[in-house]
Design a protein around this nucleic acid. Structure first.
Length: 563
RNA sequence: UGGGAUGUCGCCAAGUUGGUUAAGGCACGGGGUUUUGAUCCCCGCAUUCGCAGGUUCGAAUCCUGCCAUCCCAGCCA
């Protein structure tokens, strides 16, 4: 199976519903939209929505629009628009139209006038606090605003003057006249236009009144002939309002809103508000910090678009709220990279080994497969010399029973090379192991007749003479607890894991790796998948660890320790 | 205590116009292959569908009641 192939998509209630509708002839094709507000970066939760929207449109012969829901100029910025476009494209999707709710401001303004003329909207001249009190509570109905009975002419006049800029922020709002006693609070005369003397990233100073989400969204859907407006569960209560507006306005089509559960992943936060705080308060190094669950962060961490799409498909779409273990995301990356990533050798925490019977000054070039299961990836030549680096973890003076790596007097195979035996352990004054003296068995060299001699373990290495020094960054979960936002009494930033980033400054890479580019992912054998950081330079390579390999030994070791 | 929604194996999730033994994936356990303790390959893994009643020849699927969890009182989206 190729990694880029999507696993057979599990069916879900939305697809089933659309299938049914198409079978009944209600739709010839499905048109969806992905509607981000440009006030932050996209995260993995958005990816779920993107994948769903594009998948439904593709399956049912339609297309998807990218629509920026830019109705609140106070928090929206052009840089977010740019970042969002880049992320959606990076994920591998091409939108049919790039739209902006702000493109429809004139039409929306007229729709509001239409409501006014129908007696279905009025200008309320009370302040926000008063309106809030009049809205009632969850258990008590609201009370009518004294302005609810304003005449059509007066409403029209006031609304036109709101647009003309005659009033300061907050002086008036336009409200839909629905039902102040509705058990659904969204129907208690929701505000649909407010005054904001605020420049907009796209319309500049053309407007000083802006439509609310509820007034803009459904109408934008209708204008674009969106058939299915997919959104998250918290908008379920808004559907009656969505429907009410679309039914009372002269819109060109009749879209339908369907809600699904948003994505939750443990040990992270997936809300723009919180992610924004992490960035603005400097808890992380920007929106693309590799520990961030943003698409930009995951990309820098080394995630592939394929792995993210596969993940989104695998988790399914339902209305029940669930929490996906972060490990599921990681496994999808491994599954993808396992079949694609070229194998390389790198030593993260070096321990010097001198091969005592290896001629001084000599270099041997060994043939190494770039991928053990995919001969098509070819081979490369790796140099070895008298002194090499091995991983500190791969030597233990007091080795437990099932430790298959190097120990005093023991043998181990050097990956792609030969078997060595540890003859001597050199320590410093403090008793730390600083060097090993080993002898190698020339007969066991790869390709030689003696190569099939079995030893328990195989370890990776890098020639000391040829190795390239590099910085390697290891990432761990950003939070220490499964649900950082669970406790209302505790600020989620207090749960940040102080050890989420470990920087190793003395790693050694096999030669050639220093020239890798940020999208040249590879597997450091036995360690994990790594990718050069965008700041990496040939003379100063920096690699990020995207994910470790599955490590049953670590688990076993852990189990042994805990009894 | 109003309204809206959800509850199927440790985590996801099919199935819900009632009908043989409740899909699949992940995780987990066991075995095999292996110059990555990786990958890969086999095998195992819910007499039970939030709980309690009821209807029925037959219910995860229908009815009643209860319980748990989530969302809603922004001129945010």
């Amino acid at each position: 199976m190729s990694s880029t192939e999507q696993p057979s998509a599990p069916t879900n209630f939305i697809r089933n519903r659309i299938r049914q509708e198409v079978a009944e002839g209600r739709y010839q094709r499905v048109i969806t939209r992905f509607p981000p507000e440009p006030n932050g970066y996209l995260h993995i939760g958005h990816a779920k929505s993107i994948v769903l929207n594009f998948a439904m449109a593709e399956e049912f012969a339609g297309y998807t629009n990218l629509r920026f829901d830019d109705t609140n100029p106070e928090r929206e910025e052009q840089r977010y628009i740019d970042a969002i476009r880049e992320d959606v494209a990076w994920l591998g999707y091409r939108w049919e139209n790039e739209c902006y709710a702000s493109d429809y401001f004139e039409t929306l303004y007229e729709y509001a006038l239409h409501l006014i003329d129908q007696g279905l909207a009025y200008v309320d001249s009370q302040d926000a606090e008063t309106i809030r009190i009049q809205r009632g509570t969850l258990t008590e109905p609201g009370t009518d605003s004294p302005f609810r009975a304003r005449s059509g002419e007066e409403n029209r006049d006031l609304y036109e003057r709101m647009r003309a800029g005659e009033f300061p922020d907050g002086a008036h709002v336009l409200r839909a006249r629905i039902d102040m006693a509705s058990p659904n609070i969204n129907l208690r005369d929701p505000v649909i236009y407010r005054i904001r003397h605020q420049a907009h990233p796209r319309t500049g100073d053309a407007w000083c009144i802006y439509p609310s989400y509820d007034f803009a969204h459904g109408q934008s859907d209708a204008i674009e002939h969106i058939t299915h407006s997919l959104c998250t569960l918290e908008f379920e209560d808004h559907r009656p309002l969505y429907d009410w507006l679309v039914e009372h306005l002269p819109v060109p089509s009749r879209p339908h809103q369907i809600e699904f559960a948003r994505l939750n992943i443990d040990f992270t936060v997936l809300s723009k508000r919180r992610l924004t705080r992490l960035v603005e308060e400097g808890h992380v190094d920007g929106w693309d910090d590799p520990r961030m669950p943003t698409l930009a962060g995951l990309r820098r961490r080394g995630f592939t678009p394929e792995s993210i799409r596969n993940f989104c498909t695998e988790i399914g779409v339902t209305k029940s709220e669930s929490v996906i273990p972060f490990g599921v995301l990681e496994r999808n990356l491994r599954d993808d990279l396992n079949v694609r990533a070229p194998r390389r050798m790198a030593v993260l925490r070096p321990l010097k080994v001198v091969l005592t019977n290896f001629p001084e000054g000599e270099v041997e070039w060994l043939e190494a497969a770039n991928h053990p299961q995919d001969p098509g990836q070819g081979n490369r030549q790796v140099p070895i010399s008298r002194e090499i680096w091995i991983e500190q973890d791969d030597f233990l003076e007091q080795a437990p029973r099932k430790f298959f790596r190097l120990k005093p007097g023991g043998e181990v195979r050097l990956r792609n090379a030969f078997i060595i035996r540890c003859d001597e352990v050199i320590k410093d004054a403090a008793g730390n192991v600083v060097e090993l003296r080993c002898s190698f068995d020339p007969e066991s060299r790869s390709g030689q007749p003696g190569a099939d001699r079995k030893v328990k373990g195989t370890i990776h290495w890098v020639s000391a003479e040829h190795g390239v020094k590099a910085e390697v960054r290891l990432y761990d979960r950003l939070f220490r607890v499964p649900n950082p936002s669970a406790d209302k009494e505790v600020d989620f930033v207090d749960h940040i894991n102080p050890d989420s980033l470990e920087t190793l400054n003395e790693a050694w890479l096999e030669p050639g790796l220093e020239k890798a580019a940020p999208d040249d992912f590879c597997q450091f054998e036995r360690l994990g998948y790594f990718v050069p950081d965008p700041a990496s330079r040939p003379d100063q390579p920096i690699f990020n660890r995207a994910v470790t390999l599955r490590d049953t030994w670590a688990r076993l070791e852990q189990a042994l320790k805990s009894g």
